[in-house]
Amino acid sequence: MTEPEDSSLVSSCLKGNAGAFEILVERYQRQIFNAALRMVKDYDDARDLTQTAFVKAYERLESFDPRHKFFSWIYRIVINEAINFLKWRRQHEALNSGIAEATERPDVDIENGERTEMVQEAIYQLRVEQRVLIVLRHFAELSYRELAYVLEVPEKTVKSRLYAARQALCVLLEEKGVTASD
């Protein structure tokens, strides 16, 4: 059976079929949750951000521009939410002069867990604007055009920023001695 297109589901939702939105949630919750997790490095915060992003997407569905892909749009929402959250958390942590411990993530393979954690740590040490690019390009696999839409900057800017982000991440991975396994 052919799965309904995102655009059809959005149209159906705007006609009052909330079930159509549930299909979109099912389709993209994993990607959006993981993008949020890589941005904020906390399981519970990532869950909350994912939930907020989808609820906001539903509330603003009328403003969705069908010339873009739904998943680009929802990425845009969750990334903006994550950036705002990180600003808030930085202020909050400064006020409390302590850094919240990242929540333990369930279901992480023990053997790969340590390396995954080091990679995540390296990503988290990037500046937020660099982290976004690594997450969206290398994990979400967005095209440069989609990145430009999500980040609201020209493609040329995306490329130069991504190149710098990659270089910064290479340095961090090298410092941690993280290399690709066989």
Binding site: Q29, N34, Q51, V55, D109, R115, V119, I134, V178
Partner: peptide, 19 residues
Amino acid sequence: VLKQVEDVDPPARLRHDIM
């Protein structure tokens, strides 16, 4: 290295909670 990082399963009730 990035390709070898696996996705984390979202909470089982996430979709339900969103809806």
